[in-house]
């Protein structure tokens, strides 16, 4: 049972949140992870999620928004089911990162921070994701794909389309 009645989250996540606020020396330490996990479940951080998390932590909504808007992985609008994040930072750029981004734009038919009509994919150009030595690289949701070529991107995207892609959460 969640400590919050009428939780908007799944019972599992609510239980996880109940636990999360107890493990730190101060409750508020759970804030950033909670926002991220809430987003993983809902697809974005909704106003309702903001309010419930504020209650769980014991701070006001504004404080949650202050924090939420700081972190670039957190979003307040839905993205596609699979969020394709292409790194174009220096190491990737040197090995064709922009080509990969262009390729994604073309094959998915969407631009930066846009979502395909069917809601399957969204695309984002991101900063360095820590895969520099295996560049160019991208993440689909939390899964890494490196040593990319346009052909490899097609294979990866097809896997997701087919529901075969790894969805790390």
């Amino acid at each position: 049972m969640s400590t919050v009645t009428n939780t908007i989250f799944s019972p599992e996540l609510a239980a996880r949140f109940d636990h999360l606020v107890t493990i730190y020396p101060v409750k508020r330490s759970a804030l950033v992870p909670m926002l991220l996990y809430a987003q993983d479940e809902i697809g974005y951080v909704s106003d309702a999620a903001v309010s419930e998390i504020a209650v769980r932590i014991g701070i006001n909504d504004l404080e949650v928004r202050n924090v939420l808007s700081y972190y670039s992985m957190l979003r307040t609008k839905p993205a596609g089911k699979y969020n394709v994040q292409v790194c174009t930072n220096i190491s990737c750029m040197l090995r064709g990162g922009y080509g990969i981004l262009d390729h994604c734009k073309k094959t998915l038919g969407i631009g930066h921070k846009e979502t395909t009509a069917d809601g399957t994919f969204s695309l984002e150009e991101v900063e360095c994701i820590g895969a520099c030595c295996w560049a160019p690289a991208m993440q689909v949701n939390y899964d890494f794909h490196d040593g990319l070529t346009p052909e490899k991107v097609d294979v990866v995207l097809q896997q997701y389309r087919d529901g075969q892609g790894k969805d790390v959460k």
Partner: peptide, 11 residues
């Protein structure tokens, strides 16, 4: 290296 038409920058 940057092949996108109009550069805005990541993020």
């Amino acid at each position: 290296l940057i092949t996108v038409e109009q550069l805005v920058g990541a993020g």
